[in-house]
Amino acid sequence: DTLHVTQDGKHIELRGLSEEEIKLVEELLRRGRKVEEALKIIEELRK
């Protein structure tokens, strides 16, 4: 699936995420994380 995010005035499209990963990214962003940080966390969880 694809998640569309706008952060720091930039539109970012995150592709290839599972539904659970999207929920996790959304939660991390709500808690003030940056998109880059959220993606690093997803990458770690995929290992």
Rank of each mutant, 00 (worst) to 15 (best):
E13F: 11
K47T: 13
G9M: 03
E20P: 11
D1H: 15
E20M: 14
R30D: 10
R15H: 14
E36C: 06
K47S: 15
I22G: 08
K10R: 05
D1P: 15
T6P: 06
L17P: 00
E44F: 09
V5S: 07
E13L: 10
R46F: 03
T6L: 15
E36D: 11
G9W: 02
R31A: 15
E36R: 07
D8M: 03
E27T: 09
I41P: 00
E44I: 08
K47Y: 12
E27K: 10
Q7W: 02
E37G: 03
T2D: 08
T2W: 08
E43G: 06
L14D: 04
E44A: 09
V25H: 01
H11I: 13
E44W: 09
L39S: 02
G9K: 01
L3P: 07
I22N: 05
R15W: 14
Q7C: 04
R30F: 08
R30I: 08
L14P: 01
E36W: 12
R31K: 12
V5P: 06
K34T: 11
K40W: 11
G9Q: 04
I22M: 13
E21P: 00
E43L: 10
A38C: 08
L3K: 03
R33M: 15
Q7I: 11
G9C: 03
I42T: 01
E44N: 07
I41C: 05
D1W: 01
H4I: 15
E43P: 00
K10H: 13
L3V: 11
V5L: 09
R31S: 13
K47V: 14
E13I: 14
L39T: 03
G16S: 05
L3N: 08
R30Q: 11
V5R: 01
D1M: 11
E21C: 01
H4F: 05
T2Q: 08
E36T: 08
E21S: 01
L29T: 05
D8C: 05
R31I: 14
V25E: 00
S18C: 06
I41N: 04
L39D: 00
K23E: 11
K23V: 13
V5E: 06
E37T: 05
A38K: 00
L45Y: 07
S18P: 01
E13C: 05
A38E: 00
E37I: 05
E19N: 13
R31D: 11
L39K: 04
D1Y: 03
R30W: 08
G32N: 04
V25P: 00
G9P: 03
D1R: 03
R46S: 02
V35D: 01
E44Q: 09
D8V: 04
R30A: 11
V5H: 07
V35G: 02
R30V: 08
E13S: 10
H4M: 10
E26Y: 14
K47W: 14
E43Q: 10
L28A: 06
H11T: 12
L29W: 02
L28S: 03
G32A: 01
Q7D: 10
T2P: 09
R30H: 10
R46D: 01
L39V: 09
R31Y: 13
L29S: 01
G32C: 03
G16L: 06
L17M: 08
A38Q: 00
E27D: 14
R30C: 07
L17T: 00
K10W: 13
L3D: 08
A38G: 02
I22Q: 09
T6V: 15
G16M: 03
K47R: 10
E19I: 14
L39I: 13
K40M: 14
S18W: 04
H4E: 11
V35M: 07
R15V: 14
S18K: 07
R15K: 15
L39F: 06
E21R: 00
R46K: 04
K10T: 13
K34W: 06
T6Y: 12
E27H: 06
R33H: 15
D8I: 03
R30M: 11
I41F: 12
E44S: 06
I22D: 02
L14Y: 04
V25R: 00
G16P: 04
Q7G: 09
R15Q: 14
V35Q: 03
A38F: 03
E21W: 02
A38N: 00
I41M: 12
K10I: 15
I12W: 15
E13H: 08
L3Q: 08
G16T: 03
E21D: 03
H4N: 09
L3I: 12
D8T: 04
E37W: 06
L39C: 03
R31E: 12
G16C: 04
V35H: 04
E20Q: 11
L39G: 01
G9Y: 03
E37V: 05
L28G: 01
L24Y: 08
E27A: 11
G9D: 10
I12S: 05
I22L: 09
L45F: 07
R31L: 12
L29V: 08
G16I: 03
L24H: 06
E20D: 14
E36Q: 11
G32R: 01
E37F: 09
I12V: 12
E37A: 07
T2N: 10
S18H: 06
I22K: 14
G32I: 01
L17G: 01
E43F: 08
E19S: 15
L28K: 01
T6G: 06
K34D: 10
L24N: 03
E26W: 13
E43A: 09
K34R: 13
A38W: 01
E37C: 06
E26T: 15
G32W: 01
L17D: 00
L17V: 02
E21F: 02
H4C: 07
E21K: 00
I42P: 00
R30N: 09
V25N: 00
R46A: 03
R33E: 12
R33S: 14
L28R: 00
V35R: 02
R46V: 02
E36H: 10
E19M: 13
D1T: 09
V25F: 11
L14F: 05
L24P: 00
L45T: 06
E44K: 05
G32H: 02
V35A: 05
E27S: 09
R30L: 12
T6Q: 13
E43T: 06
L28F: 12
D8S: 05
L14W: 03
K40Q: 14
G32S: 01
K23Q: 12
G32F: 03
E20G: 12
I42A: 01
K47N: 14
I42Q: 00
L14V: 10
R15T: 14
K34M: 07
I42D: 00
L45E: 05
R31N: 14
D1C: 06
V5T: 07
L28P: 00
E27W: 12
R46P: 01
L3S: 10
T6W: 15
E19D: 12
H11C: 09
G16E: 08
S18Q: 05
E27C: 02
K10M: 14
E20L: 08
T2Y: 09
